[in-house]
Design a protein around this nucleic acid. Structure first.
Lengths: 246, 246
DNA sequence: ACCTGAACACCGTTCAAGT
DNA sequence: ACCTGAACACCGTTCAAGT
């Protein structure tokens, strides 16, 4: 009764493969479909039912591969963070030292945030599995790489742990803000539902009572994320350098 | 029919004031009740129905004072951030200069995160009203204070805006992590629902394959949030000092 | 083995109706 | 003016039943 109407959206045309021939379901397929859905429609739109629909299947089928919605979101985070592993084949930093590793890692996490701005808040805000894991470097594999890379390159145990904490804070602060501004443009727009009594377009906020903000609005709107990230990263590396040399 | 049983919880004993005499509803009362509820029960538990119950009222009554759930959450954020206003009566920084203001503001936001760890993620992750507002300093009033305080103390326009951005990233990174670790302990525990096939207590994660992490687990579990925050704040102020003096 | 229908206990939200 | 009952369109999740 509730499902008489097909929800308005022409879901059939969105995904060519449907009831007839579709990829066999599996946990990775489900997780990757969830990521694709979040990228395209935003996190709030992801529903067991909508995800099932995007796979040409009823929602209940997903419970074969995923232990409920929370488990699905956890798997999404793990899948995304997984690409931050050190590849042993990569001769990443023979001479670059720990600075090279941290540069590589920082830009890797940043690329992740840029590629999946709607999913990054998940990486950044979900409670990690262990209390000593900190977002966004929230997988044991990545932390193991991190600690090994630093301790094998001159960091004491204490310095490596301190670096892990400082590095996490740095990445979280910068990338969550970047992802938020990018995610806003990607998110599906709300219905305008015209305001009945408004009389003017009012395309920007009214800044009558905020002279400083009004005067600096131009500057505030400019985007310098790239430079700011690089400058702050350099500053952090300089700060960490003090931990090594002492 | 759905409401025959009182949901199990003895809600009557939780809040003494109920159907007989209760505070008259108003928007501030509703918003403060929402904050209290989030503090006590966590964000996921906050529901129009549960909030109504905590006020001794049906959920539908809330729609008189609040424009739906999203509007309620926005009001919660505004209410919390409101306490970061510069009090004109406070003779805060006659001689302390901009460093004194930023110190005051940083510790104010930190106190906010500590007092409301379950609500801080809301402050940190909700899309701000204007694109040039950045969490957690996401109110026009606070930004106006910020820009005025800095430009009147030697910052150029460009430097003041750059400081706003760097300061926001700093606060977000450090305080969201702190709030997450505190919020985890406050959150209402899930039902244990015993695992059928597990054979051992397994009170900590199995770190067999993670030698570095295992070796450093003690260090990783130690909490140095206070010092780390102060050290990073000092470092940021030093960095901003370069913007002023040039 | 894999998927589905039907059902249950929830949500947010609207609106006519009560007092 | 303020609150509520009933209803609607959604959720996540379970489970017996289908193929």
């Amino acid at each position: 009764m509730a499902r008489t109407t097909p929800d308005g959206a022409p879901s059939r045309s969105r995904l060519p493969a449907r009831t007839t021939d579709r990829a066999p379901l599996s946990r990775p397929v489900v997780v990757e479909a969830a990521i694709a859905y979040i990228d395209a429609q935003g996190l709030p739109g992801l529903t067991m039912r909508s995800l099932g629909q995007s796979l040409g299947v009823e929602a209940m089928s997903l419970y074969r591969y995923v232990n409920g919605r929370e488990d699905l979101l956890e798997a999404v985070v793990d899948h995304l963070v997984g690409r931050l592993r050190l590849d042993p084949a990569d001769e990443l930093a023979p001479a670059d030292g720990w600075q090279g590793y941290l540069q590589w890692l920082a830009h890797g996490v940043r690329a992740l945030a840029h590629d999946h701005p709607n999913a990054f808040p998940l990486v950044a805000t979900r409670h990690p599995a262990a209390p000593w894991l900190r977002p966004p470097l929230r997988s044991l594999d990545v932390v193991e790489d991190f600690l090994g890379a630093l301790t094998s390159r001159g960091f004491s145990d204490e310095a490596a742990v301190a670096a892990y904490r400082a590095f996490s804070s740095f990445l979280l602060g910068h990338l969550l803000l970047e992802a938020a501004s990018r995610g806003a443009s990607t998110a599906p727009v709300e219905e305008p539902l015209d305001e009945g009594d408004a009389d003017v377009p009012q395309d920007d906020t009214d800044l009558r009572d905020y002279p400083q903000t009004e005067r600096l609005r131009e500057l505030l709107s400019q985007n310098h994320d790239d430079e700011e990230f690089e400058v702050a990263l350099e500053s952090l590396l300089d700060r960490l350098d003090l931990l090594v040399s002492q």
